[in-house]
Design a protein around this nucleic acid. Structure first.
Lengths: 149, 149
DNA sequence: CTAATCTCTCTAGCAACTAGAGGTTCAAGG
DNA sequence: CCTTGAACCTCTAGTTGCTAGAGAGATTAG
């Protein structure tokens, strides 16, 4: 049986976070010592590792809750698991595309800011200007409004 | 003079968000009508466009506050602006790298979950397992703890 | 047995908004 | 001129995923 501190070290999840996960029902209520301190078995470590890794993969706690719920019913089709993972993949791909557009814009900004004074520097100008939206990240149109003057 | 609603439509920033930005000092307190309603001039639109675009680029409100502060002193060197933009670029590149690792892991997960039952599906197993960390996104070592059993 | 180190609960805070309650002001139509 | 309805006001509280601190109790090493 591990105390919460050992579990925190072993899992890489901080103590208040573990208690938080218990509070919101991601982890079952831990056993307690006679003095009311939490005690964990090995499977808590597994569950925490699962949560931690899923968080690193960008799953929300809600998605993780779903996955954990599914894994408690191991005879079902993994259709739902697959759907969750695919949705997650799409979200990740979207984030990557967006960040790559942002990266090239930042690079252009830095190129234009070559040691001059702010009044000559294009960074702030570029940031105030939406004319690049269509070319750079206008794929999701609802995110880029025209600011016509 | 624009009312807050028109400004919201023109800028693509929601009304409560505009008020929030005023509250935290990103926007100066707006002029008011005799009946206490906010009135904005054109330059508020520019400032909001700046904030909005910078937010889209992933700048935090604190970084934006810095940038706005700098742009109020246009005679200085843009050294600081450049530094902020470069730091932001590094952060964006890090996020992209991380997301790409996550993407390939999700793809592998989905491949392994080919229509079977959950007990045969590797998604959950992969998520509970840190053995791929070194290969996939172990660049930032402090994020991947061994969970040896 | 005592001191140091955990751990407990509870409350409050972070970013960056969003939503709602309950009340006021404005612009247009009759 | 008056009314109606949309837009606005302030204020509080909620969101997600934690993190920090206070003040009290538990456990363990020497």
């Amino acid at each position: 049986m591990l105390t919460i501190g050992k579990l925190a070290v072993a899992s890489g999840v901080k103590i208040p976070t573990i208690r938080y996960y218990e509070q919101i029902g991601l982890l079952p209520a831990a056993e307690r010592s006679p003095g009311n301190q939490r005690l964990y078995a090995r499977d808590a470590l597994k569950r925490l590792a699962f949560i931690r890794h899923a968080r690193e993969l960008g799953f929300t706690l809600e998605a993780i809750r779903d996955l954990l719920g599914l894994s408690d019913r191991p005879d079902q089709s993994c259709f739902e698991v697959d759907a969750i993972a695919r949705a997650q993949l799409r979200a990740v791909e979207g984030r990557i595309a967006r960040l790559q557009a942002l990266k090239s814009e930042l690079e252009r900004m830095i190129d234009r800011c070559a040691g001059g004074t702010i009044s000559a520097c294009r960074v702030i100008e570029v940031l105030g200007n939406h004319t690049h939206c269509a070319a750079d990240h206008g794929r999701d149109g609802q995110d880029c409004h025209a600011v016509s003057e």
